[in-house]
């Protein structure tokens, strides 16, 4: 979404920049456009706050996933199945 050269951007454009900001640095002009828009738009302010919250929540979730060891064990049946297929491979 190209917003270059505009002073006023729409909510559609503002939310796009807010999303993009989660992964990438915005250009100076984009940051300015977004700031100005947020001053005037309650809904986009909420959107921004909520997207940032989701990013933080996902960050916590990822940390949990990384730290997680073995919580679920393979069943005996699953293991048997896997071993069987490995044996089949060896014999072929």
């Amino acid at each position: 979404m190209e917003t270059q050269g505009k002073m006023m951007i729409t909510c559609k454009e503002a939310t796009f920049l807010i999303s993009k900001e989660q992964q990438d640095k915005l250009r100076f002009s984009e940051r300015l456009q977004l700031r100005l828009h947020l001053l005037m738009c309650k809904y986009c302010r909420r959107f921004s706050e909520q997207v940032k919250f989701m990013t933080r929540a996902i960050g916590r979730m990822k940390k949990r996933i990384e730290q997680q060891g073995v919580e679920v064990k393979l069943t005996a049946e699953q293991k048997q199945r896997m071993k069987q297929r490995l044996t089949d491979l060896k014999n072929n």
Binding site: I65, Q68, G69, V70, E71, V72, K73, L74, Q78, K79, M82, K83, L86
Partner: peptide
């Protein structure tokens, strides 16, 4: 010895995949 892989690494890899 890949014969032991399922016993030695199965659970760990399964968890790794499952959460993803």
């Amino acid at each position: 010895n890949p014969d032991n892989w399922v016993e030695d690494h199965g659970d760990y890899l399964y968890n790794y995949a499952l959460v993803r």
